Computed example of a mutant assay.
Amino acid sequence: MERVNAFILSRTGSSVTMIPEVANHLISSGGKRLRPMLTLATASLCGYEGDGDVRLAAAVEFMHTATLLHDDVVDDSDMRRGKLAARKLWGNEASVLVGDFLLGQAFKMMVEVGSLEALRILSEAAAVIAEGEVMQLSAAKNTATTEDDYLAVVRGKTAELFAAACEVGPVIAGRPKEEQAAARSYGMNLGVAFQLVDDALDYGGREAKLGKKVGDDFREGKITLPVVLAYRRGDAQERAFWKRTLENGEADDADLQEAIRLLGKHGAIDDTIARARHYGAIARDALGLFREKPEARALIDVVEFVTARAH
């Protein structure tokens, strides 16, 4: 990871001074670097020797950072990782364009690795992530969103990059399709679990851990799984509350407390976490092919880390 971080910093350079300023504001703001770690871990798991994993891990982090820059513009977010979002400091235009720069750099790094299959996987992921973002736009403020609809958004906008980050490890190691598919399944299900825990934490977490305000999803009118569950389980009066606050955008801090009460009444937070643990279990089982290897134990620990954040 030290090599990945050094590589990331070397690729944010530009003669256009605003680009490294905006990029480094987010890149150096203490993210977990979970996705690039997964690329390194799955490559090591499959016995890869070379430096292609470092380049692909950096590419994955650049893709993730680009989506965060774009997301904050789409969501009108003020905070990211406990700091002011880049859009608040440099404006929406700069955030979008620097995100585009990072995507371009990510693809350059993929090409340098020389694996057409790894390039295919990550470029397909970039397209799927964008589709997921557009799907989320259409689901936003729509209380008719079903659990299946929502999970399709999660697989696209969040889990796809986890899946691709894991799949490219065995690909560059030249491992058989069976192992590539297992690594992808692990990443996809880990990514779903990760997002569902995030959804739960938005209503029940602590701001210091979240890096944003508790209730931001509610203020932004986002329909996440806890809301989907509470809406489906609620009576007509409660559904009218969700329509007023989320669809019509007529919400204040007192409404946030009422939303948290309704989520608690219907067990929506606990059930969201239970679903996250279910997907975590699928991720663990996907590693069965590799159970003899120490790296597999570390990857199982990642599942525990992701789901334990809910406590």
Rank of each mutant, 00 (worst) to 15 (best):
S14G: 01
A259I: 08
E117R: 10
A274K: 14
W90Q: 00
R35Q: 07
D78P: 04
G132M: 03
E49V: 14
N248A: 14
V96P: 00
V214P: 04
V171R: 07
R261S: 12
R277P: 07
G174S: 11
D253R: 11
G204T: 14
P20R: 01
A251C: 07
I27C: 03
D199T: 13
L45R: 05
V303Y: 06
Y150H: 12
E167Y: 06
T17M: 05
A200V: 14
G204M: 12
G13L: 06
A200E: 15
R55E: 13
K32G: 11
T224L: 02
V60N: 01
D198R: 07
T146A: 06
H311Y: 13
G204D: 15
S28D: 12
A296L: 06
K293W: 07
P176H: 14
A140H: 08
D216H: 09
E250C: 05
D72F: 00
V96W: 02
E160R: 10
V16E: 03
A86R: 01
R35M: 05
F162C: 04
K141E: 11
Y203R: 02
F305C: 07
V197L: 11
R175K: 15
L40E: 14
V214Y: 03
I121Y: 04
L122E: 05
R284C: 07
D199G: 13
D53G: 04
F62P: 03
L246C: 06
E258P: 02
R232N: 15
M188Y: 08
D216C: 07
T143V: 15
T39K: 09
A159N: 04
I172L: 11
M135T: 08
A181L: 14
A183G: 10
